[in-house]
Write a protein that binds this DNA or RNA. Sequence first.
DNA 1: GTCTATAGGTGGATAGAC
DNA 2: GTCTATCCACCTATAGAC
Lengths: 188, 188
Amino acid sequence: MTLSTTKIEILDAAQDIIQLRGYNGFSFADISQTVGIRKASIHHHFSSKAALGLAVIRRYREVFNRFLSEANSKGSTWIEKIHQYAKLYENTLLQNKLCLCGMLASDIETLPKILKKELREFFNDNVVWLSNVIKVQFKSMPDKHLHKIAWHIISSLQGGIMLARMQGQKEIFPSIWDALNLYLKNLK
Amino acid sequence: MTLSTTKIEILDAAQDIIQLRGYNGFSFADISQTVGIRKASIHHHFSSKAALGLAVIRRYREVFNRFLSEANSKGSTWIEKIHQYAKLYENTLLQNKLCLCGMLASDIETLPKILKKELREFFNDNVVWLSNVIKVQFKSMPDKHLHKIAWHIISSLQGGIMLARMQGQKEIFPSIWDALNLYLKNLK
DNA sequence: GTCTATAGGTGGATAGAC
DNA sequence: GTCTATCCACCTATAGAC
């Protein structure tokens, strides 16, 4: 499926604003200004705010999963793979943004139902990927335990990016990776 | 300072809604309905939305700090103290809410300046408390390292509560405490 | 201290011309 | 596919009666 330039620009603008200010902090007026079209014209491309939000999450999820696949094929150690995963968060922080889905996770109670579903699937993908990465090292570890570790990794990184940005001290984030790294190396 | 009943009810309602839906998801209309007074009457107690928000954070911070002081005087081990800290988050999750300040941390880009300042001080208090608790066990550990560990604990718990609520799987949270516990026990 | 009434702004969304 | 014009709901905030 090919997207028109305008459609992509709208998606880009919407994603940017959501990662910066959250779902309730983004409006058609903001996008209108960034893209350079009128509010009414956005509705030609996306029927509603929810439809636009859904499209943003879907695209983000696809891009994210493509990154994870590629990280897999690079043949590095399990720790290096998780470090690449962490770097993804750090790059986001350096743009003063949160992970799109981390931001939406805290907005969950105000989201249209269809967005909640897509959001949970994004995190399921993440848990599955991390679990598989860890499993290579700990072959006999039960899935339940693998998932626990995966959720801990995601929680630390999502919390870390959120707090480092809030505090205006980006150096907080790398130190969280250090701690996480120590935790992973002591696993058995 | 004594607060009138109405004032307290307004603070309670505002805090509840912010912990559930965030700063941009809370309105005078919501509070009006919960407390049972008209929107205009709220302005008699709090001059603006920002003033109300600030009062909510200040009170939360005070209550939180009182809890931390009490936890200190209970003479339990350092791990038990941090576990009590984690329990505080778990109780919040069981009400389907986020930590007030965790929620506001993700809303940071949309907050009035005065709220940002108070928010950062809340987290500074938390870092100081955790650092002091850990220092009892690791007396020669440099402050910088203590702060790293503190930020990691806060990040995991804030991220954990956010994700467990989002996923609708509250059992994710205790498993994050397990991981954190393992991390702490391997510190040296 | 609470009310009604209202101002002035912004939100998402729609109709219809071009 | 983009525009103008408009709708209605909701927002924070204020004036002034009671």
